[in-house]
Design a protein around this nucleic acid. Structure first.
Lengths: 376, 376
DNA sequence: TTGAAAGCGCTAACAA
DNA sequence: TTGTTAGCGCTTTCAA
């Protein structure tokens, strides 16, 4: 391809100045129709495409919002499987957030630049993103705090789904603690379970820790003994580890087997389900099992998993709204913090029956799973 | 936020020239370590972030690849539901393609700019994208052909998942016809069905038309009567229309009810399943039902839907590979066309039994559905 | 190893 | 309504 034509080429060919060419694209009505047509025709003949870079440089804005998310590359999904095997939580999160952001961005006339932080990449990917957008969202623990510190001085940044790492940054999170508290409460009050166990990941997962706190609260307010620590911590919150955890818990010589296993995420819970089945332990008959997140897998396993659904899509939308407000200067300078409500989903694994067709659950009511939308 | 610092500010503060500042970022090794440190320190203090626009402008490349996909905004999903209710096919496609592209782009050091073509937007969104990327992919029928015509003269464009609209463009598609042929063959040969019906959408869906051709071929080579036209065309390929279609087919006073309903996509098939159940028609006992696409919903419905899985993720990856090759000049100038194989998935709705645990299916063999990966 | 200087292609005053 | 003219912040020869 030859050198790309510029405003100068178009201007020359259509016999106008470059300013007029520019106007035709930025503000067509400010140019006489006849002139406009001539310019457009010339542009078409030359194959002219305005340079976003030059535009951005001259106008100091890009019309693009960004999202940085973790490098979720993992061996399991690298096999090229193109089915729905794929249940890496980080990945599913990103998908939903991307969706939410994309929609909201579009509404506001922005495009979306997405980039996963390539670990050990040459130039930190975030710098690349930061330089090309008007503002961006970051999934927690994706970008080194120090980088964010610097960048957030220059453009709006909103932190997603984690604790507020930097106190002057906007941030949006899900009500992890609250959700786990509700779920635990349900197990205790509605199902009368009392010997509960909580399975967490490493201490450095803020979400999982928040969930554990919710669990503690529920125990406390129900008058049950409050564990200082999760009954078990696993190195990674995967299905494999969940399966292993279930085994460990079963074999433990404590006061009888637990009546419920509350896992800090769905993947572990799903793994546990498999392990329990292999050992002939019935769920929920012998032990109730719950997860957290509401990933698609949670609905596919048998018994279907009781869990807490996180509003990742909405999180993406809210992130965009926040960024846009910052960019239009409509917000105060105060950093804002938003806690999105989560939704307990009672399915079979906690002892709630299979879904039944009934009227739609009221707003905010932790409902039974609703049936597949028939739409027919 | 005050005016962003530039190379000049950093240069001044660290007592070097702007060229050196630039070098520190582009090619650190070409600067003495001591100087480099000084520059970096100054940058940090000032909160300097290199401008992607200026960079792109000066270096004539962006390090960004793009994707344009259709505006799939639809009333159903605008209700803000954040669960998995969401089965808009276009949307699911985009997600998978985005995933594939993002991963591949990352491997090659590119970021990904995504934008849905906002119908009736002011400036065609594609122009916006085109000006900000080094090359991009377009989902078929997203961008006016004339625009593509112009743009593709200036940067690499690859067309996805449709027929080749512009003959000098690279394009990647799935083997729609072949997949439907295989599926139809399966119904005829393995299940002995002979009175088949095919339900398509409007004639302007190239994918659906290709599928119909595959259906015709299978009928022909089996010695069955070959329909000139689909037995039914519906205005939109939705669940609601699928349900309606099933009703129409049942009520038709033809030579007895059909033994199989082959729908041009999964959504229609899913809708049909509901309609048939309501009318007391057993699937697959009374009639076999198949879809196309392999969306997650196809696995969730009961009976699970026999379908053909499209490799959307891989399509995204291939798109990036193609673009990168074009950009590095490693390819010939010939436009390339790639047809990705699809995978028939035999589930219950065609009469194949429920999934059984068996060894992994051989490569390319249309296997039974594999069980949920236990990973435990 | 570093610096000087000329653009990259556009937008946005300001004039006309 | 249209043209003139400075930049926007960086990369990139070419010299030193």
């Amino acid at each position: 391809m030859s050198t790309a034509p510029t405003v100068y080429d178009v201007a020359e060919r259509s016999g106008v100045s470059i300013a007029t060419v520019s106007r035709v694209y930025r503000n067509p009505d400010s140019v006489r129709a006849q002139t406009r047509e001539r310019v457009l025709a010339a542009a078409r003949e030359l194959g002219y495409v305005p340079s976003g870079n030059a535009r951005g440089l001259a106008s100091r804005s890009t019309g693009v919002l960004g999202l940085c998310f973790p490098d979720y590359a993992d061996p399991d999904t690298d096999t090229g499987a193109d089915d729905e095997t794929d249940d890496n939580a980080a990945m599913l999160y990103s998908d939903q957030i991307i969706r939410g952001m994309e929609r909201a961005a579009r509404r506001h006339g922005y495009a979306l630049l997405i980039a996963a932080s390539l670990k050990g990449g040459p130039e930190s990917l975030v710098a690349k993103v930061a330089g090309r957008v008007d503002g961006f969202a970051v999934l927690a623990r994706t970008v080194p705090t120090e980088d964010l510190e610097v960048i957030s001085r220059r453009l709006p940044v909103v932190m997603l789904a984690g604790p507020r790492e930097i106190d002057h940054l906007d941030h949006i999170e899900a009500a992890n603690s609250d959700g786990q508290r509700q779920l635990t409460h349900h197990l205790i009050e509605d199902h009368g379970l009392r010997r509960l166990t909580f399975i967490a990941g490493e201490r450095d997962s803020p979400d999982a820790e928040a969930r554990f706190r919710g669990y503690q609260e529920a125990c406390r307010s129900a008058g049950l003994p409050v564990a200082e620590e999760p009954d078990l911590r696993v190195p990674m919150m995967t299905q494999a580890e969940g399966a292993r955890a279930a085994g460990v818990l079963l074999d433990r010589d404590s006061a009888g087997p637990p009546q419920a296993m509350l896992f800090a995420n769905d993947q572990m819970a799903a793994g546990a389900l498999h392990a329990l089945e292999r050992r002939g332990v019935r769920v929920p008959g012998d032990v109730a099992v719950t997860g957290f997140d509401g990933i698609p897998l949670s609905r596919l396993v048998r018994p279907a998993l009781t869990t807490v659904r996180q509003p990742m899509r909405r999180m993406g939308e809210e992130a965009v709204e926040r960024l846009v407000r910052r960019l239009t200067g409509a917000d105060s300078d105060e950093p804002m913090s938003l806690m999105l409500p989560v939704t307990p989903v009672h399915r079979e694994s906690c002892g709630c029956g299979p879904a039944e067709v009934s009227g739609p659950a009221g707003p905010d009511s932790p409902g039974r799973e609703s049936p597949e939308t028939p739409a027919g």
